[in-house]
Nucleic acid binder design. Structure first.
Lengths: 195, 195
DNA sequence: GATAAACTAGGACACCCGTACCACTTCCTC
DNA sequence: GAGGAAGTGGTACGGGTGTCCTAGTTTATC
């Protein structure tokens, strides 16, 4: 939460931290800045200069710690996916699947937009594509766990497809939340009832 | 299909066409070029220069016929949506819903990617957002018609959510087509069987 | 303490971008 | 036919981009 996690101290160089630790912190700061920019302004907002400026680091640090912008984006995507999976898992375990619409309503919309933006972009980049698959698999696994089904159960897979679209539509089109809620309960009933 | 629909003829100006018709053709050529570029290289590929070059027209023509790049993108999106809806409707009426995976397999993947890319981007632009809503509504309507349901039937809405995700995943993640097929048949059975 | 390695910081390069400008030609209206 | 509007095409401007280069500083290893 420190806004200046590693501002260079020209006058008083750090003493009780090794430079390696400092470098690690800087790299993490750059990554966090990239994620933030991605969620705020979308894909095009993640530029070397913007990232460096956000992290309070010189421009060249971005090319030093990341070989290219693509690599930076890939790592940012992976980071975002992991964070989002963990957050959603926590939320579901305490509130259940039916509470998801409320989660959608309270969550940061631009953040979700950035995630989806990168997801679609993954269709044009093999590296990102692999992360996108991990994302889908993680979500399906999450749904299966919540329903007490094996991860390969097609019912979990199907319910996730509905969940996914409802989520995407909520983020992109900003449809009324009540419709999403009723549709979701419909879907859950459908997948569990007809044995 | 003519690669040079309106190449300027410096030496022999057109005679049997008025300039207004020529201008209309030029505008359409620019729009088509924008759609092509969008589907090929994604969002960032649609630049004034690239569009003009693709349409074999001078750079300034893009700013003459479109007030800004945003307007050009919006019109390209609308055009793409309309075309895609019509194409899919034709396909479904002749092959049925269960044949959709085959349609996905044969359709131009990059084109679909461009469509989704723009769809997600619509979350950041109110004008595009409206087009995105029209797209979803059109798809739901299409599904409802095929199933013989009223357009407001939640079952059509739900089936579309599954369809949508399967489609998106196929385009982005390139999952094996067989899984998509079996999941789709599952979903169709689920939505129609359990009254 | 010397030497190599890692890191920092600023600037520069070449490129592409959206858009504006300006002569020029062609068409439509009176 | 005259004059204004519409359309055409080449170019310039200011700005932002990814990446590279280089000189300086700090740290780790011998």
């Amino acid at each position: 939460m420190n806004p200046h996690p590693d501002t260079p101290q020209h006058d008083t160089p750090p003493q009780h931290t090794t430079t390696q630790a400092r470098a690690r912190r800087r790299r993490a700061a750059l990554l966090a800045a990239a994620v933030d920019l991605l969620t705020e302004g979308g894909f095009a907002a993640v530029t070397h200069r913007a990232v460096a400026h956000r992290a309070h680091l010189p421009l060249a640090s971005t090319t030093y710690y990341f070989t290219s912008r693509d690599q930076l984006l890939a790592e940012a995507f992976a980071h975002l996916v992991e964070t989002e999976l963990r957050t959603t898992r926590d939320w579901i375990t305490t509130h259940g699947l039916t509470g998801l619409p409320h989660h959608l309503a309270t969550a940061d919309r631009t953040r979700q937009l950035g995630l989806w933006e990168l997801y679609v972009h993954a269709g044009r980049d093999p590296v990102l594509q692999q992360i996108a698959r991990r994302w889908t698999d993680g979500c399906v696994h999450l749904v299966a766990d919540t329903l007490g089904l094996p991860p390969t159960d097609p019912r979990a897979r199907l319910l996730y497809t509905t969940l996914s679209t409802l989520w995407l539509e909520h983020v992109v089109e900003q449809r009324p939340l009540d419709d999403t809620r009723t549709l979701l309960t419909h879907a859950i009933e459908n997948t569990l009832k007809p044995p």
